[in-house]
Each structure stands twice: as structure tokens, then as C-alpha cells.
Amino acid sequence: MTLDRRHFLACGLAAFASCAPLRAQERKRIAAVDWAAAESLQALGLPPMAVSDTRYFNLRMPRALPAQTQDIGPFWEINLELLDRLRPEVIFVGAPSLFMTPRLAEIAPVETVAEVTGEHSYERAAAILRQCAHAAAVADSAADAVLADIERRMAQLAARVNRDRPVCVLLPDQGGRRAMIYGRNSVPDAVLTRLGLTNAWQGPTNASGFFQTGLDALMALEDAVFVQIEIPTLSLQTEKALSESALWHRLPPVRKKRVVRIGQFYPFGGCLTTLHLAETLTAALAKPGSTP
């Protein structure tokens, strides 16, 4: 089912991108260290020729990279010699990469992507998409078309989503004792707001919008639906730990079986991640488990 949605998403956006066809020789040679930029380029129909940590990107992001995409190492230590040999014309990075390997700037002009901070995490995705279009020398209309398509689908999802209850997006740890909650200013929070949902967690968060806490802090969220993030490699351990966790079973949403699951996502992702997250959230909340 997830695959179908993903397929649909990919085809739809590719169709849009083909409105502004670009022949291979006109394309800029772009390397993306930052994944939000990489997926924005994908959305524009211009997948970058080199991406950091491609294996994990394909595991975690909504759309897989073309097979010939070159892996250039992890984002905190790019293989500079390899990247230089690939002769990129522009490199998209997040601030941490540039701090770790400032010599990236010697290879090609560097475009720094905004970090997830403050209240503009939804607008950030659009800003990154426009930044990518600009740096890739495609017409702004291409970015506008992609954004309009995403907004149209967001509106459809917002009209359809089950808004009965506030939602708490959380990732339990493998000990079954703590959870990472996505609160104010996080990407999931921005998606919830866009869909017209209420984030059940209105408590404190760190700079990236996360809050790591014991399960006791969740006791107060009596009306909420828990959206539990499942990381495939860890789900076995997490399930076992949760099944043995006495407090987990006494949390009101768990007791009333208001727990739904979604797959993993990249919490610093761009426009494809937000749309994909909106789709999985809408689908998950529509399941019978989510109604009391």
C-alpha cells in the first residue's frame, strides 16, 4: 500500500517536471550533501548526480535515487577528492557539513540550505525548492508548478483527514521506557498544522522541535491518538520492549487502542518528505484503530 502511494506520488510529480523539459546537456552538474535539497531536485525532475550516503537515502526517503547516483560519503565527512573529480557546478549543503569540511567551497559554489529552526519549518521546504530551482538555473515557474501540485494534494488530504482527535507523533526507544516526541517547530508538527490537525504535545521542545522524555509525560494526553514511528531495523526490539512496558499499556491512548503506525521519515526533509508524511498520516489516521 505504501509502495502504491509512493509510486503514485513519483509519477505525478515527474509528469509535472516534464512540463519544463531539460535536455541532459543543459543540466547543471549538481551534488547534494543535504537531503532536503536532494529531494527538492528530485521533485524538479533533476536528480543530483552525487548525493551523500545514498544507501541510507534510498532506505529512508520517499523516492529512490537513480542507480547511477554517486555516493560521496556521509554528510559530516564528504569524500572531497571524489567530489572534485566529479566536477560539480554547484553543491547543496547544510550548515553542519560546511562546518566539518569547509573546503567543499573550493570545489564549486556552495548553496547552504536553511536549517529546521523556528516557526517556519513548513515554509522551509518551499524555500529550499525555490533555492534549488534557482541554483539549477530552471525557470521559477517549474518550482511554482511543483509547489502548486503539492499544495493541491495537501488541500485534498486536509479535506479528507480524520480530525477527531489531537495527534502525538512519537518514536519509542528500544527499552520501552522513553519516547522521542515531535513538538512545536518540527517538520511533523508543520504537517499536522497544514492538515488542520492539532499536535497533542504542546510542551517544551529542543531547537529541532524534538523532546526526549519518559513515558510518564504522555499520561496527560488523554484524548490523543498516538502515531508511532516504526523504524524497520528496530521494530522487533521496540515491539518487545513496549509489550513488557507496564506504563505503556496504561497510557490512555494505548489502553483505548488509539495507536497507529507510520514508517520512518527524515525529520529534516523537504517538500517530498512533507507530502509523503501528510499522506501516510492521513492514511494511518483513517484506519479503524484510530477511532474510539
Partner: peptide, 23 residues
């Protein structure tokens, strides 16, 4: 590190002693 997200990974990389940043 435990609260750092993306920066946490970068910090961990630096602490393990990466040399890519040297000019």
C-alpha cells in the same frame, strides 16, 4: 550529542577524529 540531531552526528564525526576538514 544525545539531543543534537544532525549536528550530533557531525559532532560525533569530529570526535572520532575525521581529517577531511583540514586545509
Amino acid at each position: 550529542l544525545a539531543s543534537g540531531g544532525q549536528r550530533g552526528a557531525a559532532l560525533l564525526g569530529w570526535f572520532s577524529g575525521i581529517t577531511g576538514g583540514i586545509d
